[in-house]
Design a protein around this nucleic acid. Structure first.
Length: 878
RNA sequence: GCCCGAUUAGCUCAGUUGGUUAGAGCGCACGGUUCACAUCCGUGAGGUCAAUGGUUCGAGUCCAUUAUCGGGCACCA
């Protein structure tokens, strides 16, 4: 026990350590890009801002785990790593929370008024908005808190105004009555992407449309109340049943309003009755048909989806009540035919879940084609890469068919549209708040009531957070950002819009890579949802197993873009891995450091085979991890590091090293200590981005003056350490150790009983030289090199060595014969396969030379093994 | 309808540009508390890599078709 070291506790007390370590990082300013050299290349991620209303869920932990890993990795590589934190005002979600609060107080937003409502919302934000921030800390997010942003901050609001005004001046924003998706519950317009469609059983109503001359056209609809807003009946122009009626007049049931019968090829003759009622005020397809035929548009509903004055006798009724009453009246009038159930697609609000009604309303829109064209080009020509690549197709598909974006919301919480109306109906949009109308000079002006879609401000996030439109130092240094990491579910909502707006306003790509992670599902693969009641609170896992365990589970549990299931068992396993690391460090390496005062880079050429093997494997691991990080395969990187630490380092090398540590060869002891400490040191660096807390804590116990791990350098791979010869030798040793253990287990040899062995063959010397390894790992007392096999032995063959275990009195010859016969069969089968391969002229001439050489080597080895086993079999007593 | 993903051990999942006998964890069976760890160690059983066809000297991996499950987009009243 060195005086330099403190004793590590038995286990890692994450509950105590996590907040302490996080506070220490933050206090020392380690999260700031300024910890890197002034000329360091920047690496920037803008956080996907959680909703200010946000309750922590596994999606948050997922993005924190991945982004924090990227940031920590690049920080350790010496880059100026900047992770910008922030929170989104989340217009609808927040407003709903505050409205709920007001309801509980017995009032509502209309009663308190806009100003008071906003005041109360800010109060609410100040009270609850900090919670998500605490949880980011809890998760270990190494964000630069000094650069924290909120989408309603003055500087970001300025960015929003600048963007809006620029688009307006460029003629890309327009206002007017259009058919939009209306959410009656929220009483606001929503955009196309906010409408989700679900297949549901509905009723299809068949009825008669009276036409002049006494005929009628049968028509089907799912929404009978919209009959009252019909402005045409459409049939296919070549439909023999109806084409003679084209041009005649039909009469709207119950109101007798005359409308034309039109012919349009959109009508599917085979579906329903083959005739279609046209309701341009409440159906997107009908709206398009109406434009082709210059039909009138009737708006039937008010903002609560009740029928307005155009509903005639049904005015004032809710849409569903109106439906019922109208259908009953039509039945009385003899106009109904039948109803039948059928499955159709129902549009529902992504937020509220209620059925969305298409209706005509005056809204603000952005013309998307020019913006989309740039966004398509940026991905098409590779300036922006999407990982996994398959999402590029989804991205293109959406952008190539993009429709104009309805950006106005009839809410109060958000960025108010910077447009001013005057009493003459003019609109003024300008950078300085106007005092009079820019068109007519009227001073009677007022600001537009609507606010912008939350995603409008989110679209500016990568540059608005850095100060745009001001040309700040941060903007110059840190924009464009590097990677945008988020869930696949907001590719359209957020990612595509950031790319469009970034290119449009800054003329630069906002980031060069989009990395998309999948959904976290429950243990059985079900999507988590409040209604199903299977939502897992990540804090439960974090309390039970620690933050590192949860992070490691999420990162290594899947592959990019694919969903993954989470379960207690998985997180527990990660916790166990952290414990293993802790044990290696505290239980072995640090406890046996002697006077080793700091990490020393070993020289493999001076070391024994196990150490050369370990360092060779370590060098290979580092190279692999680097390649995997470059290709965004973080999960695979984590799994490989874990495998190295647990299997090769802990289970093999550490056990072997005890021979030196507990022996009395001081020079050997010193070399081994150096290898152990070096390897531990390197593993901690490699694991830090995955498990920041436990690695930092162990690091603090390592000897020598050192900076915190978070700002230590990422390891590099020394290719001269790669040693195939040592690896091959060690493979033979390991193979034989496993076989000895196997034989001992099969013969139920008392684990405590020390046995001897005899090695025969060209590799026998290697085995004899490593007798101590066998001694420690499989309780072998001594290994003699001999030319002849001893009797009454179990025989083990590996490569060019045959090992005999004289187990006099313990060997069951029948069992031994069976075991050897099986092995002989396996080996013979392999030999036959290789002989066949090598006998194939095409293989020898066309396969890569190293592949052919490898097969030849294997053949020689296997043939030797076969001969040994066969010889042994022939001498076994029967 | 169009696009995409998945299909590998009982379960959950890995699997570099095609190249040794396809791996891990959990679970299971058996054995182990001697000085890091039972949050552990050792040994083992368990897979015709969804199916068919193709390309290739060689396919879990590439291509085509099919099946089942899942997702996205667009949809017909």
């Amino acid at each position: 026990m060195s005086e330099l070291s403190r004793e590590m506790s038995k286990t890692f007390d994450f509950a105590e350590a996590e907040p302490r370590i996080y506070a220490e990082w933050e206090k020392r300013g380690q999260f700031k890009p300024e910890v890197a050299s002034a000329d360091a290349e920047p690496f920037v991620i803008a956080i996907p801002p959680p909703n200010v209303t946000g309750e922590l869920h596994l999606g948050h932990v997922m993005f924190v785990s991945l982004e924090d890993m990227m940031i920590r990795y690049e920080r350790m590589r010496g880059k100026a790593a900047l992770w910008i934190p922030g929170v989104d005002h989340a217009g609808i979600a927040t407003q709903l929370q505050v409205e709920k609060m007001l309801r509980n107080e017995g009032t509502d937003r209309e009663s308190v008024g806009r100003e008071e409502f906003l005041f109360r919302t800010w109060q609410w934000k100040d009270k609850y908005g900090g919670e998500i921030e605490n949880q980011l800390r809890r998760m270990g997010a190494s964000v630069d808190w000094d650069r924290k942003r909120f989408t309603l901050d003055e500087s970001l609001s300025k960015a929003v105004r600048e963007a809006f005004i620029t688009l307006w001046e460029q003629g890309l924003i327009y206002r007017g009555p259009r058919l939009i998706n209306w959410s009656p519950g929220l009483q606001t317009a929503v955009s196309d992407v906010e409408v989700e469609r679900s297949e549901e059983e509905a009723m299809l109503y068949f009825f008669k449309y009276p036409v002049e001359g006494g005929e009628f056209i049968p028509v089907a609809t799912t929404r009978p109340e919209t009959i009252l807003a019909d402005t045409a009946v459409a049939v296919h122009p070549e439909d023999e049943r109806y084409k003679h009626l084209i041009g005649k007049t039909a009469y709207v049931p119950m109101t007798q309003r005359p409308i034309p019968v039109i012919g349009d090829e959109y009508v599917d003759r085979a579906f329903g009755t083959g005739a279609l009622k046209i309701t341009p005020g409440h159906d997107f397809n009908d709206y398009e048909i109406a434009q082709r035929h210059n039909l009138a548009v009737i708006n039937l509903m008010d903002k609560k989806a009740a029928l307005n004055e155009n509903g005639g006798p049904y005015a004032g009724l809710d849409r569903y009540d109106a439906r019922e009453k109208l259908w009953a009246d039509m039945g009385t009038a003899g106009l109904t035919i039948k109803t039948e159930k059928f499955i159709h697609i129902v549009p529902r609000s992504q937020r509220g879940g209620e059925i969305v009604e298409p209706l005509i309303s005056v809204q603000w829109f952005v013309k998307m084609e020019p913006l989309a064209a740039k966004a398509i080009a940026a991905v098409r020509d590779g300036r922006i890469k999407i990982v996994p690549e398959r999402f590029e197709k989804v991205y293109f598909n959406w952008l190539e068919n993009i429709r104009d974006w309805c950006i106005s919301r009839q809410l109060w919480w958000g960025h108010r549209i910077p447009a001013f109306h005057c009493d003459n109906g003019h609109i003024t949009v300008q950078r300085d708040s106007p005092v009079k109308c820019a068109t007519c000079g009227s001073r009677n002006i007022w600001q537009d009531e609507d606010v912008l879609d939350t995603w409008f401000s989110s679209g500016l996030w990568p540059f608005s957070t850095l100060g745009w439109p001001e040309q700040t130092a941060d903007l110059a240094r840190f924009y464009p950002t590097a990677v945008l990491e988020t869930g696949t579910d907001i590719l359209f909502f957020w990612v595509a819009r950031m790319i469009m707006m970034g290119l449009w306003f800054t003329d630069k790509i906002p980031f060069h890579t989009v990395y998309l992670h999948g959904l976290i599902r429950d243990e059985r693969g079900n999507k988590m949802s409040k209604s199903k009641g299977n939502v897992i609170n990540p804090l439960g896992y974090m309390n039970k197993y620690g933050t590192d365990a949860l992070r490691f589970t999420l990162i290594t549990g899947g592959t990019p873009g694919n969903d993954q299931n989470i379960s207690d068992a998985k997180v527990e396993y990660s916790r166990n891995f952290g414990n293993k690391l802790w044990q290696i460090a505290g239980g072995v390496v640090l406890r046996n450091l002697g006077d080793l005062a700091t990490t020393i880079t070993p020289n493999p050429s001076t070391l024994d085979i196990p150490a050369q093997w370990l360092l060779s494997r370590l060098a290979g691991l580092i190279a692999n991890v680097e390649r995997l990080f470059e290709t965004y395969q973080y999960g695979e990187a984590g799994r490989q590091i874990q495998d190295f630490v647990w299997t090769e380092f802990a289970d093999w090398y550490v056990e072997i090293a005890k021979n030196a540590l507990y022996g009395d060869d001081d020079a050997y002891k010193t070399r081994t200590r150096e290898v152990l400490l070096y390897t531990l040191d390197t593993c901690l660096r490699l694991l830090h981005p995955f498990m920041p807390f436990v690695t930092e804590e162990i690091w603090s116990y390592l000897p020598g003056e050192r900076a915190q791990l978070i700002v230590s350098r990422w390891p590099t791979s020394d290719p001269t350490w790669i040693n195939p010869d040592a690896e091959a030798k060690m493979d033979t040793i390991r193979d034989l150790v496993v076989k000895v253990r196997n034989v001992r287990a099969e013969y139920s040899v008392d684990p405590a009983k020390r046995i001897t062995a005899v090695a025969v063959g060209t590799g026998a010397t290697l085995i004899a030289e490593h007798a101590a390894v066998f001694g420690r790992l499989c309780n072998v007392e001594s290994i003699n090199v001999a030319a002849i096999a001893p009797d009454q032995s179990a025989v083990l063959v590996s490569g060019d060595v045959t090992l005999y275990l004289p187990l006099a009195g313990m060997v069951d010859f029948a069992a031994e014969r069976e075991r050897l016969s099986k092995e002989l069969g396996d080996v013979t089968a392999q030999i036959e396969k290789i002989e066949k391969t090598l006998g194939n002229e095409s293989f020898v001439s066309r396969a890569k030379p190293e592949v052919v050489a490898r097969e030849r080597t294997r053949l020689v080895e296997l043939t030797g093994a076969r001969d040994s086993i066969a010889a042994r079999l022939s001498t076994l007593p029967t």
